[in-house]
Simulated assay, not measured.
Amino acid sequence: MSRTTPSRRSLNRALSALALLAVAAGGVTACSDNDSASKPSAPASAASPVSPGTAQAGEAKLHMVDNGGHRLAFYVTQGNDSTIVLDSGGGEYSSQWKGIAPELHAATGATVITYDRAGLGKSDVVPGAWKAESAVSDLKAGLKQLGVTKDVTLVSHSQAGEVANYFAKDNSKMLSGAVLIDANLPQFFTDEEIPRLVAATQPEVDAAKKDPDKPANRQLISVTEGFAPAHQAFHKVAWPESVPATVMVSEKTPFDGSPQDAQRWRDAAASFVQEAPNRTLVTAKGTSHEVPTERPDLVLKAIEGMFAAQH
């Protein structure tokens, strides 16, 4: 049976194995401006717990934190004792939230934190396969060094959904709620779907291996290593019933060109929501996978609603 090829850019953003590449002008290029991963990291400086007065009102302050010998860039807009953490989609970094973060801070008064996952933005490259568990370790280490231990509203787009699920599983008491925006969810990664995803990305992986030192290619290779077993394990992860969640699904999904995969994406979100009464499903009408960019108003409404419901 033949299958229709999904939208490559959206597919690449959504799935951790496809996180960084998009096909443009007949060649493979990094999405957005993610070649910044090749830029030198900011000078190392010890992170200090966030507290009132560390920056001017509404201003994001850079904190470099250390986790196991590599540095990560965290940006903190100081507010009250409640915290909203914005976690970017695959291949994106803190700049994805540059329009949303200040609006959230102004609307809620909360401390707003964005950050660059390893190998992106100002954060150090970490050799080897990308693992959601390692990303969780980085996020938790950063929050701990910044003095954030509770009352966190976690907002995750796309690939960051994997980080969110593992983080919530082991750190549910830190979370007051979550907003998952067209996010990778365990229910999607079935034994039927995983081989389809691997096959869909193999041409890009093969091309990347011809120039492995290019930042975008390095990232793609790292997230495709061990993809199948990693996502078989992810499929078994259960979101804690104590943490409320809003799940926002784009209308077109990352699979606009593949009706079967698109329906599986929608079904996964619906299944996730149906597992507990404190979960809500929202469809972002008229959007592709790039919901934070296309409809920041909807994203702000969802986050502010979750935040208000818990405070």
Rank of each mutant, 00 (worst) to 15 (best):
A44Q: 11
L120V: 12
A245R: 02
I181W: 03
S45K: 13
I194E: 14
K61S: 06
Y93E: 02
V152I: 15
V247E: 00
L104D: 13
R71V: 02
M248N: 04
G121C: 15
V155C: 04
K210S: 11
T54I: 09
W265K: 00
Q260V: 10
N217F: 07
M1C: 10
S222F: 06
K39S: 12
Q260P: 07
A17D: 05
P296H: 06
S242G: 00
T293L: 06
T280V: 04
H63E: 07
K131I: 14
E192N: 15
L220C: 11
T108S: 07
T114E: 10
A118P: 06
P215S: 14
G69S: 15
R279S: 03
M306P: 10
L185M: 12
F167L: 09
P212V: 06
A284V: 07
K301D: 13
H70Q: 04
S242K: 02
V163P: 03
K301L: 12
I194Q: 02
E59M: 13
G305P: 11
P195T: 00
R196L: 15
Q202A: 13
L281V: 05
S288H: 01
A44R: 14
A309K: 03
A268I: 03
L62F: 02
C31P: 14
S95V: 05
S176Y: 03
D256N: 08
P195G: 07
L86C: 14
I84E: 14
E192Y: 08
A230H: 03
G121E: 15
P186T: 06
P244M: 05
V50F: 06
A178P: 09
V273R: 02
T283D: 00
N80S: 04
K150T: 14
D138M: 15
Q232R: 03
K252N: 08
A164W: 03
S10N: 15
K301V: 00
L197S: 13
S48T: 01
L143A: 09
L20R: 00
L298I: 08
P186Q: 04
A183Y: 10
A47N: 11
G91D: 04
L298H: 04
E59C: 11
L11H: 10
N12K: 08
A44D: 13
A168Y: 00
E294T: 01
Q219G: 01
V282N: 01
T108A: 11
K39F: 12
V50W: 04
S137Y: 14
V223G: 07
A46H: 01
F307M: 07
H63C: 09
V179S: 01
S250D: 09
V65D: 13
R264D: 11
